[in-house]
Amino acid sequence: MPDGQSQNPIRTDVTIVGAGPCGLFAVFELGLLDIKCHLVDILDRPGGQCAELYPEKPIYDIPAVPICTGQELTDKLMEQIAPFDPVFHFGQMATALSKTEDGWWRLTTDMDTVIESKVIVIAAGGGSFMPKKPPIKDIDAFEDTSVFYAVRQMEKFRGKHLVIAGGGDSALDWTVNLQPLAASLTLVHRRDDFRAAPDTVNKMRQLVASGGMTLEIAQISGLEGSDGQLTGVVLKDKDKGEWSIPCDMLLPFYGLTMKLGPVAEFGLNLNENLIPVDTEKFQTSTEGIFAIGDINTYPGKLKLILSGFHEAALMSQAAHRIVHPDRKLRFQYTTSSTDLQQKLGVA
């Protein structure tokens, strides 16, 4: 059943918040101990920072992998954890955590997915990737009525006078896609050069040439309107000064930035937006809730992927005691254990 439409909560062993490299590797370590996982991530794909910030950039400090890109690391991890059939809930933010009457953790997302599990693992890195907000006075007052950082329903923009800001793929894709619906469309970018896909940039330039839209080389410096209804945006340029253009809606696309978000409301002790953990179990101030990777802190902490992998392995031992309290933990190596090899599908 699709997310957000399930009549009953999903029940599983472990819910992992964050599908970056540490969250993914936790699936592996937990899987070897017969622990099943669901993962929630605000991005629409696995990899976290590796996928969002530097998919094409080389990483040189993964043990025994002299070089790989962020995307390659993600792809390899996905291949490595495939035998354990993790269930992903992408494009969703974990918004609330509570305890059920029978002692399970209940995690809810902003798409109303409800997952109940014995253990929570927070592997949320630097927090949730959220749209960068222009530091314009009073912009909050227009959000969700006239200012939108994402397009969920194109129909909302039909017949409106739109201003889109930015020079990347999101700005250019939505410029080209919304132009046929809009009453008018102005693209605002700080320079007459675009890092978006050349094909889309060409389409935009054709629309400008044919009079279908306007391109302004400027930056947005202010908003006009009242009661949440935009009537115009103020543009500025160092040569041309300031001027305003009328519009009903503004869509700023300046990329994403990380914010801790609702995890801060989960009732855990925090230290400067990081979650303190012990270095035996990587457990937080609350029993049954663990934190691994960039989001945790402890004496000597290094924000390295390899440290997060180590943390995932030790956390899994502690999680096993909670998920399978009746089972004795048997320490085994994948090289020699037929049992582990069967779980991995290689024996």
Partner: peptide, 13 residues
């Protein structure tokens, strides 16, 4: 770097 500055606000010379 010039491309990445597109993701900043209040960009100046």
């Amino acid at each position: 770097e010039e491309d990445m500055l597109d993701g900043c606000f209040e960009v100046e010379d």
